[in-house]
Nucleic acid binder design. Structure first.
Lengths: 202, 202
DNA sequence: AAGGTACTGGAACGATCGTTCTTATACAAG
DNA sequence: CTTGTATAAGAACGATCGTTCCAGTACCTT
């Protein structure tokens, strides 16, 4: 029977996730991970075959512990535009909670620093984007059922637009300490979505 | 009198810029730079004190050779909303020219992989953002003079919004090969700007 | 108490990193 | 041609990288 480690496997991944998220995959060394996770080199390599394997686990864990909780309102069965508003509000208030520049979105950060051939990582980033798009699309589709002013193609476009805008919001959160700016962005985006869904195709 | 090098200093920077842009600062090694620039190690270190110094020169060069030409319409003295449309069109058609994922924006890529304390690099990224914002703000201000429907604060917000949106567009161009999606995003953004400037505050 | 298991801490490995230095070569000036 | 200089090519340096390995130890089971 396996003995309980001082750090459980998920706690190990959580610590590694924090390091990768804040500092970036290539900058974080195994020595850093040993120090920040509190798990020895042997311990890490007994659970993961190499650094990239651990990072992939972190990407998966990121979906569970970061994306799912905050995106859950949008993915709820009865979610409407207010769910998207709530989602954006959660993001913005998270930015406002700190005076320092944010650490952005792990997925967006990773996208900027992987090589094009890195298919394993890239697949996970695609999954993330499709998850966001699908969530938004379902909401728009539901909101559109009453009026029916938008075509399916319009809804697809709007979902893609929202996904890219959110990625931009996350990305830029790494650059600024001015949360008010991010809040303004979210509000403008939100008003655009409302206008599109309830105010016709503009 | 100094002898002409086989590669001039600007050609060196251009080659290094291409490598940093496509692959990322941390992944590109000095050996890579020697191979791709065609300049020896000694030659590189005679012009730049270290790798970061060369990278800073690349960031500056990026402004000159990439940002300035494509952003020039927006910064023109008589630029209007059509200049922004032209700017977005230039970006999108650049994406459409290739079947592979894009390499994004060097500034946005760098932002995702530097440490928060890296003030020298961060200062250049801030300058870039302010440059974009200022260009957009001037256009909106000019377009607004006739009707005067927008307050100065509205114009500032809209300029920030546009800058972040453009950063998002660039960022996501690294993720997808679907240029149509990016074109759709640009068109939606453009219609929003037109509505805000000429159609009231929504 | 004894044995086995699972982890720690750290030494050690080869590879590669950024950087420096040396040697040889190609060209300009006299 | 000779001399001087700037560059090229690459050896070499210490540091650090990811990874492996080993001895010591704490804990569970019997």
């Amino acid at each position: 029977m396996p003995r309980a480690r001082s750090q459980s496997r998920t706690a190990l991944v959580d610590s590694a996730l924090a390091a990768f998220w804040k500092t970036g995959y290539h900058i974080v060394s195994m020595g850093d991970l040993v120090r920040e996770t509190g798990v020895s080199r042997g311990g890490i390599y007994s659970d993961f075959t190499n650094k990239q394997d651990l990072f992939l686990a972190c990407l998966d864990r990121y979906q569970e512990t970061v994306v799912t909780p905050v995106f859950a309102p949008v993915e709820a069965p009865d979610a409407g535009l207010d769910a998207i508003r709530l989602y954006l509000e959660t993001l913005v208030s998270r930015f406002e909670a700190s005076d320092e520049p944010g650490i952005g979105c792990l997925v967006a950060n990773t996208l900027a620093q992987i090589e094009p051939e890195d298919t394993q990582i890239r697949a996970r980033l695609d999954t993330h984007s499709r998850r966001l798009t699908a969530g938004f699309r379902t909401v728009f589709s539901r909101e559109n059922q009453a009026s029916g002013t938008l075509s399916n193609a319009d809804i697809d476009d709007l979902a893609d637009f929202t996904m890219i805008s959110v990625q931009g919001l996350w990305s830029y959160s790494r650059a600024t300490t001015d949360a008010k700016l991010l809040r303004q962005y979210a509000e403008t985006l939100m008003s655009l979505l409302v206008a599109r869904v309830h105010g016709g195709t503009m």
